[in-house]
Design a protein around this nucleic acid. Structure first.
Lengths: 190, 190
DNA sequence: ACCATGTGGCTATTGCTAGTAGCCATTTCG
DNA sequence: CGAAATGGCTACTAGCAATAGCCACATGGT
């Protein structure tokens, strides 16, 4: 009986591929094992159950998204950086819908690894917004607005929540323009 | 053996209560039957399986959300109507997190009932935005921006996606103010 | 009042899922 | 080259949705 040569890495990678074309919901250990040419219980030698697998996928997705956002902002400033980051955010989410979805679960309190990965995304956004002169609560409000608008657009788009598939590019560019304008003019709150 | 006196209505209502305090994910026919004092197969006399049940819940949630938004805007105009609608949106989603989540699935093509309910939400928003002088593609972009920002905020809030639970009220009011300002000044696109 | 019909429960069963126990062949390392 | 570790496996349990088919209750007509 020749060995399949699985590793934790390969199992997770296949799970990622699986959810990116089929949705998070249809990730099952049975189907995953099938894809890897192995029986379902064999997976437990590499991952600690379905929950742990989803957790790994989530952390990796958060880390990669943070990375992508960071790279998008390099060499740009202010409005340009914000727009580039927004487009990178949407692009990544569209290329990896399952992983994006997996990344939405908040870390459990005390789960340091997850907290770090989650925080990275926020801190990259914060780093781009800070040069606009925003600090403290004003910066927090601005970051939340930015994230809300992007996450909202991306997830409505992914769910097919926009009724007409036409003109999504235009609508998104419009949203990006609005965001950059709004954030550049962000002012202290009463 | 006395009858339990179930109806389709009661089954759906109990499912709604169930997902509103526990999340959509933990809606199972077994648990639902337990709550209703009945065995699991008995539910099939009233609903056509778990998928159909979720579908009913989704349609009712969309209809009710559309209703709530419509009522919020009555007697107000322009910025006031937009702000009131935004607050009503968030309030309803917070009061009914499971139903809000259920309402996010887009209708399958040809599912007229679902399409009507889905469209109602969009058309209420459209009705409030139109008096600002927006038509055609500009109105579509504006509606999408509005929905994106609200849905994004609400779902990030529900998932615990904002790191600090403090100041959410302030951040939301800020978002609402920003939205009303942006929409009032919405201009034709190049 | 009573019988006939329809219906809302039920038990029993199937098939799919996650997860556990424990075996054994292959690999790896002293 | 032998011993230990390891990565597959089969066999099993338990929970889930769903179907088949039974039977008691409720209802309505004569």
């Amino acid at each position: 009986m020749p060995r399949a040569g699985l590793t934790t890495e390969r199992v997770i990678a296949e799970a990622e591929r699986m959810i990116d074309d089929g949705g998070l919901r249809q990730l099952t250990l049975a189907a995953l094992a099938g894809r890897l040419g192995v029986r379902q219980p064999s997976l437990y030698k590499h991952i600690d159950g379905l929950g742990a697998l989803e957790h790994h996928v989530a952390i990796r997705a958060k880390a990669e998204l943070g990375d992508v956002l960071g790279r998008a902002a390099i060499g740009r400033s202010r409005g340009d950086a914000i727009a580039a980051m927004a487009r990178a955010y949407r692009d990544w989410a569209r290329k990896h819908p399952g992983r994006y979805q997996a990344a939405q679960r908040a870390p459990l309190p005390g789960d340091v690894e997850d907290e770090v990965a989650s925080h990275r995304v926020v801190s990259v956004v914060a780093a781009v917004i800070e040069p606009l002169g925003l600090h403290g609560d004003d910066a927090i409000d601005a970051i939340r607005t930015f994230r809300s608008a992007l996450h909202g657009f991306v997830s409505l788009e992914a769910e097919g929540g926009f009724e007409l598939p036409v003109d999504l590019e235009r609508s998104f560019e419009r949203l990006v323009e609005t965001l950059t304008t709004v954030l550049r003019r962000w002012s202290p709150f009463a």
